[in-house]
Design a protein around this nucleic acid. Structure first.
Lengths: 122, 122
DNA sequence: TTGTATGCAAAGCGTTTGCAGTGAT
DNA sequence: ATCACTGCAAACGCTTTGCATACAA
């Protein structure tokens, strides 16, 4: 039976508040505002549980650790700012990719990451 | 002064032969065919040197460690087979992405990764 | 001969796991 | 009162670094 702890609520809340994918470290720092003394292991354990429950989604960025965001935002991509290292959601998509795949390859999904500077860093 | 060791030649050669991005571990195993006893640290050190020299390029895949490929293949993307975990080059591109970026964001580059099954695994 | 490059082993770093104690139910 | 969850610390896998030796120049 799954329990609704202060820690789990804090993690979920800070992901909702952020509105963008957060790294485990970012989650820890944000959630420690609500639950001082929270440990990093707790963040990882809850991420795993929430992933399996489908509450959150992993954003597998090129070049490093995964970030996590609240699930249910539909198909979208990400913009990675090289200034502040933040990741933003991009609710646009070039569309059908099947024609890009080599002949005989079966396309199942795709991920697109844009790089540049966000409006603040520019 | 940069030296042309057997190890470095072996690493470069196996990347050329593979024709697709290899992980450090894959490079080690391939290069040990030419230079038995080669260490993993040597692979990492040469990767770093060759990256800085612009001889190879890092392929920063979502979800884990980087792979490396011979530089100079022009702008391209990658197809990641979930069956054999191999990565293939895709010499096609959806084109202009600027319109996808949020207003006020400055787009500099993009990476596209396709997922699915390669012709062998399908 | 010189000093970069190597192999090994130890150290880092982010993530995962074991364990005894805590707290939601 | 249970037993899932927590914090801590140790373990883990991948990458990097320190050091003495080997070898390309």
């Amino acid at each position: 039976m799954e329990r609704n702890t202060r820690q789990r609520k804090a993690i979920q809340q800070c992901l909702v508040d952020a509105g963008r994918p957060l790294s485990p470290q970012e989650i820890l720092e944000a959630a420690q505002g609500a639950v001082p003394g929270m440990g990093l292991a707790t963040v990882y354990r809850n991420i795993k549980i929430m992933l399996e429950a489908g509450d959150i989604a992993a954003v597998a960025l090129p070049g490093g650790g995964d970030r996590y965001e609240i699930a249910g935002h539909g198909h979208h991509h990400h913009f990675h700012c090289r200034g502040c290292d933040r990741v933003y959601e991009v609710h646009a998509c070039p569309g059908d990719m099947q024609k890009l795949a080599p002949d005989g390859f079966q396309l199942e999904s795709h991920e697109l990451t844009l790089y540049g500077l966000c409006s603040q860093c520019r």
